[in-house]
Design a protein around this nucleic acid. Structure first.
Lengths: 348, 348
DNA sequence: CTGAAAGCGCTAACAA
DNA sequence: TTGTTAGCGCTTTCAG
């Protein structure tokens, strides 16, 4: 590897001082036209590129914000990132992304690395690992150290920072109510274990919807899936469990999956078993992403507006970054939207 | 925003020198047990965190590698990133991701920002914007500046760096041959405009397969789609064009889509028109991702082994980073694999 | 065992 | 118009 050119080198070669070079390179009127030209030409020759790192050392800010997400394959996270990027770029900030892969250790590692100089603040969604071990010291440290954090999507208790979340509870209630209103009598729920906050809230919404409509809900129609559905054979096991559920309750005429994959898999299994969607069984998912759109039949779902979430998060962070007064921390709750597609006949 | 604690502050408060603090904090035997303990305790109190930025200024390396991808919603890119991460982490490197959103300007901006101090080298897949304007100055500059780049997936000519690509040509030929062998007579191709390198190569493979099997291929059965299929209504227009194609050629009994979305959309349209997959029409896609797996029927496809690609890329980059001798640049060509699912009956 | 000083690349206040 | 100098946070000789 060649080494990078520096101001010093240019200065030495040209027999001028470092500051002259610095000024010339940024077109300061202090420097004569001739010198400026000469320096610029030489710098180009050497492929000089200023070292921002040195700059941020001086400025004590980097104008970049760090985003840590649990998993990159989720369309939802991708959307959030787009939202963050758009807002951040508009406001002169760059965005750097790192992955925790749902692992606590990796989350800690990434935060440590980025927190120490590379960025001005974080936007993050905690990993499942962190949720499980309930260890939030890294977040507290970061905040104490004076680096603001905005949490999105997955929430954790007792942490003093801004948050932006989606109204999982009402979104889920809305979905189930729609199903009930369109005539479903027996709605299965496919959800996560309760330690995943959003799964828990969506489960609550399912239950509440039943209560509100005066319908009984059978716990045996709730399937709680443990985690990591996308890792290899986990998908098969999910399929088997759904199939078992459908066999156990042939009366099922509606399915609500708390995420795309759950809903989609359920739909697929049902189709394989001979059910016609949406005639025999109507299906709704949560998190509106590519899968829903491209499914056949396409999947009705509760859209989370990931981009908005990203925008909001970025806005909250940048605001905090650029003001000195310590405003109290806020929690923004975003509403969801029911996007109707082919897997339901809600108005039927 | 609170300001961050520094060695200097700790030193001042404790009435010792900066270097003592530095040494104590990293457990140097030079410092007495007592002092070390005292300093460590105080540092913790202040939530001290070393500033890596200052460190990399000294070391002139950051131990992190930058990845720039055109688009985050693609499962393939996500897989590549996982591959990169795994290998990089195993070798003591951190990974930072930035998005170009298929835009030339954003690609240039990101490269400039990261190249100037934040990272040691790049792994990147060029944006469509860059491919279109054919302006590669930013890459050349980066390389000249002494920062190694590994290009993956999308290729560009005349650039001196390591590359890792997938054998698009033979993968595509393989897919079409399989279709022909299983009895298809009229295979439609849904591909991109030719300026996208991989689209072009896959189109070539399609043609070659026909030639090799002594089958005629009709240019009218090739649908070249322009770009950005995932941006909102572009999907609808894609659907319309596929429908038109199928109506124009009722004889079509096989479809090869050069990416997941093309293949999937084709399958969906065909199903809507009453065709039974795979009985009436067999479908194969390229790039094996989540969509293929979750589709109904699930989609047979040419798997690209994104993780391997990531691993290879990371390996090439790190090797170059850690050796001084200038080895000639390599291009690794990865083979694809045909993953058979429900949308074909290749052995029928 | 502890400290002073130099230096990483850069900027900016100040001097010449 | 140009140069000198100090300093951003840190490590690392080298002295004390």
């Amino acid at each position: 590897m060649k080494k990078k050119a520096t101001l010093k080198e240019i200065a030495n070669e040209l027999g001028v001082s470092i500051s002259t070079v610095s000024k010339a390179l940024k077109g300061s009127p202090e420097i004569s036209f001739e010198t400026t030209e000469k320096i610029k030409a030489f710098a180009k020759l050497l492929h000089y590129r200023p070292n921002n790192i040195a700059l941020s050392l001086k400025n004590r800010q980097t104008k970049t914000i760090g985003v840590i997400i649990p998993e990159i394959v989720h369309h939802f996270f991708a959307e959030v990132i787009q939202g963050i990027e758009t807002y951040a770029n508009e406001h002169g900030y760059n965005v750097l992304i790192a992955l925790s892969n749902e692992s606590f250790d990796k989350e800690v590692f990434n935060i440590d690395t980025l927190a120490s100089g590379s960025i001005d603040g974080f936007i993050l969604s905690v990993s499942k690992g962190t949720l499980q071990c309930q260890d939030f010291h890294h977040l507290h440290e970061t905040i104490n150290q004076g680096m603001p954090i905005v949490l999105f999507d997955r929430q954790i208790p007792d942490i003093s920072c801004d948050k932006v979340i989606v109204d999982d509870y009402q979104g889920s209630r809305r979905a189930v109510e729609a199903l009930l209103e369109s005539g479903c009598k027996e709605i299965a729920l496919i959800t996560t274990e309760d330690y995943v906050d959003v799964g828990f809230k969506r489960t609550q919404g399912y239950i509440e919807a039943h209560i509100k409509k005066g319908m009984p809900h059978k716990p045996s129609m709730v399937l709680k899936v443990d985690d990591q559905f996308f890792w290899e054979d986990a998908l098969e096991s999910l399929e088997r469990r759904i199939e078992a559920l459908l066999r156990l309750h042939p009366c099922i005429d509606g399915i609500f999956g708390v995420n795309e994959v759950y809903a989609l898999t359920a739909m697929k299994v049902a189709q394989k078993m001979g059910y016609i969607i949406p005639k025999d069984i109507q299906v709704i998912g949560f998190t509106d992403g590519v899968l829903s759109k491209h499914a056949y039949p396409s999947l009705t779902s509760i859209k989370q507006h990931g981009k908005n979430m990203g925008r909001e998060a970025a806005q909250m962070l940048i605001q905090r970054l650029e003001s000195d007064d310590e405003r109290p921390f806020e929690t923004k709750v975003l509403q969801t939207e029911l996007v109707e597609r082919e897997s339901t006949q809600l108005l039927g």
